[in-house]
Write a protein that binds this DNA or RNA. Structure first.
Lengths: 356, 356
DNA sequence: CTGTTAGCGCTTTCAT
DNA sequence: ATGAAAGCGCTAACAG
């Protein structure tokens, strides 16, 4: 049945309006439903004549340059076929590896990953989430456990499964895949203590914008206290994302304020590398004059000289686990039996290198 | 008008079905249209009573955790409200800055950016594009000028504006925002020549997966020839994304194969940094024993010691220009007067630092 | 200013 | 195995 407005039958010309399923059906001389079924059926058995018809339909689609309208399909089936993930920053190998892991986990299930980044701000996360949820993702993966009340409300109202990653929130919104940033940093401090370091400082951000950073500082403080070391050697710089340049600045400030310091634990490998480079610029031997440790096992820390002792986390595994958990949760919702909240702990380990 | 299936009126309980506009309308006691208008109208003048009603509607939306169904809206208006961009890699500050620039340019126009990454493979790009185009983006931004024939066909058939970035393709699909990677690398070689270097090598990838890398190598070769320097000093390593570790390996190979080399031009700052660290490990002074230059002005090259001479490109400007151009093209299509193909050249410059 | 009606392109359901 | 009708949630167009 041709629609009122004229639709070009030209094979692949940039039509003013895209070709619809009805156009294809009209051309083949069948109903829309037959085309719909030909496109969705995976290629079943059927009669010989049906097989041929199906082939003819697919061929016609190709000829006409027809691409199924996923927006209409989504609308009709109430299944968008994608999941949303919000990460703090694109330009951070930890999070981009996590995104890879998510992709790997969900692509087999025919779901697409839609990515957004918050620049480490919960307000941005809220805005992003509003836009993302408006497109009806089948599930959401978040980084960290800190969100605005409005964001939490939207997430709850959406009724879709949520996985929080990279952290162990006290009150999870749904499922969790992560580790204790505080515990990991405390392990690192204990490792340095075992190596003989006693005047250990911490270099990190000030704000609570980066809650993982704050957790790491807390882990440092707790370990220092527990080991009976002298406290208070904490240098704070500005807002995340923590940069190499900030690490360099912080190191300069650190050595001016506490010249006796013998080791610096940095909130990430990026700031650790900045601190390391600053030492090289000043001619201070690392680790002889001062030891430097980081967090996250970034490429730069594995490849610089000396290489940086760090806390290694399997970022891609976080993504894979989050993706798999979300998949199970989505299936569970679909059959009407929501999954009770689960927590997956991912392991971390200290990677001793030449910088300490 | 309540729909057949029961819908919980509970404020923010995890409803099995998301709240719809009809639910909100029923709660407020108006029609769907009034809610629709209250949500879409920017906040005009109107009567005092209408103002109050609008406020009450918005408040009810908030209370009920209502999020507009963008899929239905898209379907109804035939405007998806998003643009798609494909970048080679997430974990590359050049491309993530470009993505930032795109976001900055389009968010004012009420468009959302949907990001995909191809891992430097045109086949991945094609697959991604198929899924993206099925969701009816209003425009597409691509990285580079190399795509599969099928991808080009889909793009053309979609009839939506396309911008290619980071390159100057010989046969653009639509609009272009970029610079000549070959010319930029040639400039760098001429800069090194002016500094007195004569036995200049190139470290880069082998494959044509990274066409920008291949262009840079071509620029190197042309400049070497033009300057009458000795040719052939090219070390190639594996597949992109080019890594720091590959740069280190390549440097070792380079010095073994051509011990007389006095400068190395690397395909990116990442491989340049790997090469630099390898020199430090071997105790070879940079730039005295060998000078090292990179491409892209990455954070690591600005912060390491010595800092790396590089070709600086304003990546965010590429994104902004691409976003603005796409916006104009989308508007032009909407009024039925497609924009003729445009090309925007973004500037680059040599950033001399201590590594040369 | 507000309500009513009629689709957007597809799939589901039921009939043939 | 195929077709016809209904409807997913929203908005454009028109009526009041």
């Amino acid at each position: 049945m041709p629609t009122p407005r004229a639709r070009g039958a030209a094979p692949a010309a940039a039509a003013s309006r895209p070709v619809t399923m009805a156009d294809v059906a009209a051309r083949v001389g069948v109903s829309k439903m037959t085309v719909s079924r030909a496109l969705s059926r995976t290629g079943g058995e059927g009669r010989r004549s049906a097989q041929l018809l199906r082939e003819r339909i697919l061929q016609t689609c190709r000829e006409m340059g027809y691409v199924i309208d996923q927006t209409a399909r989504t609308f009709s089936t109430q299944r968008s076929g994608f999941i949303a993930a919000v990460i703090p920053s694109l330009n951070n190998s930890n999070f981009s590896e996590t995104a890879h892991g998510i992709t790997a986990a969900v692509e087999g299930a025919g779901l697409q990953l839609l990515l957004g980044y918050s620049d480490y701000r919960v307000e941005n996360e809220e805005r992003l989430l509003r836009e993302l949820l408006a497109r009806r993702p089948e599930g959401v993966i978040l980084t960290g456990g800190s969100h605005t009340p409005a964001a939490c409300a939207m997430l709850r109202a959406s009724g879709i499964p949520v996985v929080e990653t990279w952290d162990l929130p006290a009150q999870p919104l749904g499922h969790t895949v992560g580790f204790s940033n505080a515990e990991a940093t405390a392990s690192l401090v204990r490792h340095l203590h075992a190596q003989g370091y006693r005047r250990i400082a911490f270099i990190g951000g000030t704000s609570n914008r980066d809650t993982r950073g704050a957790d790491r500082r807390r882990g440092y403080t707790e370990a220092i206290r527990e080991l009976g070391l002298s406290e208070g050697r904490v240098i704070s710089f500005g807002q995340p994302p923590i940069s190499m340049a900030q690490g360099a600045q912080a190191l300069a400030q650190l050595l001016q304020q506490w010249p006796d310091v013998d080791a610096a634990v940095c909130v990430s490998d990026l700031s650790a590398f900045g601190a390391l480079a600053e030492c090289q610029r000043r001619g201070w031997a690392v680790p002889q004059r001062i030891a430097i440790a980081g967090f996250g096992d970034f490429e730069v820390g594995r490849n610089c000289h000396p290489r940086i002792t760090t806390v290694a986390v399997d970022c891609e595994a976080i993504g894979r686990a989050a993706g798999e958990l979300l998949l199970r949760a989505i299936d569970a919702v679909r059959i009407g039996a929501p999954l009770p909240p689960e927590t997956v702990l991912v392991p971390f380990h200290i990677e001793p290198r030449e910088s300490t």
